[in-house]
Every structure is written in structure tokens, then in C-alpha cells.
Design a protein around this nucleic acid. Structure first.
Lengths: 245, 245
DNA sequence: ACCTGAACACCGTTCAAGT
DNA sequence: ACCTGAACACCGTTCAAGT
């Protein structure tokens, strides 16, 4: 059990060259580049340049570009305020919407992260923590374990999907222009569409301009929450038509 | 009004070199590369190589790589069966779910497109047509114009967001392994998680393994549809608590 | 008008060599 | 153990020149 293999301590005693950085510093650099120049500005090479080392030195800390992106996502998602979900006081639906609005704000501060979230498996520690808190909140709301687990996914999809689509219309560099400005931009673009071909769209431009608003974000989430099966326990499959059983 | 500038017809008479391709062929090539090697296999240069021309020749047909991706998205999204939505016969909620399930199938046949959809503005003709059909269906369902427009966005977010997250766990190359296989893979991965740190998650592994299933997809969408405001016309803002007014 | 040829300024990743 | 130096096989995009 001892002596056959060199332990980490023994290796340390040989005093090899010490790490010049920590993974934290690598992610710091990547996040800074992301916020300065959008996702296109983040590369193994740009991180290396920012830290003053050769490109391949970065591979001491991350396995690949994908792994670097994963670490950045982890950093940002890990800053989400899960207390909003686990706090037993507020009504559960309100808690979820308040939490989601805060998560939206957080993601809008690092817009490129929203896109990355939809492009890689959400299986990191931060995503697990978020999922766990959501499941906890939904259980408090009286949903069965199975319905809670289904609901948690639908809620994450609606939340992250909304922000990703919102961000997709920007250059991905924070700070984004104010919501009101982006809505005005959308409105003028929508005002040019052909009412003969798209009549419903044509007469909905006002609301559609606000698709990227916090109001629409909360509205969609509220609709989803209102449609979740109640504790009463209806089949929660496909069949239900309307209201409470 | 005439004679001061050469018209397109006059230019044609000079018989310049004719186009070797059409935009259709460019998109064909890009889509084929996308399906053979995932999104990483599509580049201006790979499309050029496949067509036997120099890289910069592609710029005769598309303005940039982003423009090429936009055209590929347009091609795939344009193949969606909107008749499911505009057909006045079926119940509107059923129509939306059936349509969304078909759209999911279509996107899973070109997995990389789902990711692209979340990474660029959805303002192409195909997206307009889809939105218009959705608005039409929701109007038939009795929603007000404003609620219909809000609902349309929430439905698109839920639909495309679900597929994008599902695809994010694959290599993006069709054909994807069967759903059952991908679920099994998820289950074995979920079976390793720490029940002390994530107790709710730990006891929900069975349902969570199925997050990428057609069943979960329809379940989330159904919940959203069930939560939409009825024609009765409640405020549809923030306040409502439960059921019909 | 469209393509070729050539170049610029990048990329991620790998390998061997230094310390 | 970690970094340097150098290289490989790519990118998107631009420009001038041919036809």
C-alpha cells in the first residue's frame, strides 16, 4: 500500500517546476476576453497571449478549447443565486420567476455564456446544483417527484432558451445596449415586413418587438408554471384538456 | 431614366463569365458536409473544396460564413410542415404539439442546425412563415392577438430550446443513435452522482435520464400550452394564481 | 462578372527539447 | 512537472490579376 508508487508528496519533494498559474487564472483570462470581444475573442492562443505564455502552455490547465468553454460556463453559472430557490418562505412559483429573472440578468452580463450553455451538455457541478435547487423548490410546491423532475427541465429550457435567443440578436459583448433600445431596434425592423404575406405577424409587431423583454421572459415562464400538473396528481402525460381535475 | 446607367439586361449582353453554381448548390454542399461531419466540418474552404473551386470563389454566393450558416438554417427550417398549424380541423393544442414533434424530428435529422438556430437571430423567411402559422393557430385557439404573440415566442423557445439541449449531448452527426440508447447512456452517467450532495437529483435519475425523450418534449410543451391565458382575457401579466377566471 | 493565385492574420493541437 | 520552440494542418477574408 505504500512505497511501491510515488505519492503526490514525494513528487513535490523532487521540486519540479511549479505551476505558473491556477485554473482560476486561466478562466479569469478567458472570461475577461469573452466580455471584451465576445466568444470570437476567446481562444487557447488569446488566453496564452494575455497570460504571456506560449499557446501550448495552456494545455497544462485545460484539456481543450471545449474544456475551457466548459470551465467558463461553470464559473458564470456557479454565481447564480440559488438561495432564491431553496429559501422556504416565498411562494414557490414566485421564487422560480424571481430566480430566473436574476439568472437572466447574470447571463446578460456575460452574453456569450448563454449561447455556450445551449451548445454543450449541462452536466457540470453548477448545473447539478441549479437542478437540485429547482427540484427542491418544485417539491415544496407539491409536485410529485416525477412531475418535479419533468418540470425542472422544461423550466431550464424556457429560461436558458429565452436568454440564448435574446443574446443571439446582439454582438455578444457586454454591456449590451439597454433593453428598451434593443426593443426599438426590433420594432423598426419588424415595421418593414410584408403584411400581405405575414398578416398576423404584421399586426403583432408591437408585442413581437418585446419578445426579448424581461416582461415576455416572465410571461412565458409564468404560463409554463401555471400549466404544471397540480399535486392532485393527474396523469401528467398527454391527455389532459383543461383546468384542474 | 434610361441610357445613363447600364441595366442588368445590358450587362447580360456583354456576356461576362457565367456563374458556375447557384446558391442552392452551395447550400446543398454545406448541408451535406454538416450531415457528414457536424458543424466543425462546414467551412467556406470545405465547401469550396467539395465544389472544386478556390475558397474565395464561394464569396460570389454568400457574404460570409455566418451568411452561409443562415442559408443552411433557412433551408432546413423551410422544410417544416406548417400545414399542421394552419389546418383548421384539429384541436389547436394538439396541432401545435404534433407540429412541434415533427419539427423536432426534422431538426434531429440535421442536429447541428438546432444549435445554429439558437446562435443567430431568427429573422429569416422560414422563421417568419413559422411564426405566422403559429400565430394563426393560436388565434384559432381563441387567444387575444397580444397573448397569441407572446405565446408564439414561448412555444418557439420551448421547442427549439429542447432540441438544442438534446443535440448538445451528441456529436451532432446524423443519424443520431436511437433515443433509447441515448437515454440509457444518460442513466448510467446519472447513476454515478453523489446522493449526499444532490439528494433530489439522485432520486430523480430515472426521469432525468428521459429529459431528452419525445415524451418529455411533449410534456413540457403541453404544460406551457395548458398555462396559456384563456380567451376570457385575464390580465396575462404577472398576477394570476390558478385555473380559469 | 466570376474565378484564380497569392497572401495575411489567425486557429487548435502535437511533439521534442529544455530546465 | 511545466514551459519553450517549432511545426502541422487548418481557418475566414482580402486583394490583384486573369478571362
Amino acid at each position: 500500500m505504500s512505497g511501491t508508487k510515488s505519492t503526490p508528496d514525494e513528487q513535490r519533494r523532487i521540486r519540479p517546476n511549479r505551476r505558473a498559474f491556477t485554473e482560476t487564472q486561466i478562466v479569469d483570462a478567458a472570461l475577461a476576453l469573452l466580455d471584451e470581444g465576445g466568444v470570437a475573442a476567446v481562444s487557447i492562443r488569446s488566453v496564452a497571449t494575455r497570460l504571456g505564455v506560449n499557446p501550448n502552455a495552456i494545455y497544462t490547465y485545460v484539456a481543450s478549447r471545449a474544456d475551457l468553454e466548459r470551465a467558463v460556463v461553470e464559473r458564470v453559472l456557479g454565481a447564480a443565486q440559488l438561495a432564491r430557490l431553496t429559501d422556504p418562505d416565498p411562494e414557490w412559483r414566485t421564487a422560480i420567476i424571481e430566480f430566473a429573472l436574476e439568472l437572466r440578468t447574470l447571463l446578460l452580463e456575460h452574453p456569450a455564456v448563454a449561447t455556450l450553455l445551449m451548445s454543450a451538455p449541462m452536466d457540470g457541478v453548477a448545473a447539478r446544483d441549479l437542478g437540485e435547487a429547482l427540484l427542491d423548490c418544485l417539491a415544496r410546491g407539491g409536485l410529485s417527484a416525477a412531475d418535479g423532475a419533468r418540470a425542472a427541465y422544461a423550466i431550464m429550457v424556457q429560461t436558458i432558451g429565452s436568454v440564448a435567443l435574446e443574446v443571439a440578436e446582439t454582438d455578444g459583448k457586454p454591456p449590451l445596449s439597454p433593453e428598451s433600445e434593443r426593443i426599438t431596434l426590433r420594432r423598426t425592423a419588424l415595421d418593414t415586413i410584408d403584411g400581405d404575406r405575414w398578416p398576423h405577424t404584421r399586426s403583432s409587431t408591437d408585442v413581437m418587438a418585446q419578445w426579448i423583454s424581461a416582461d415576455q421572459f416572465a410571461w412565458g415562464l409564468r404560463a409554463l408554471l401555471d400549466g404544471l400538473p397540480e399535486k392532485s396528481g393527474r396523469p401528467a402525460k398527454f391527455g389532459s384538456d383543461e383546468g384542474a381535475a
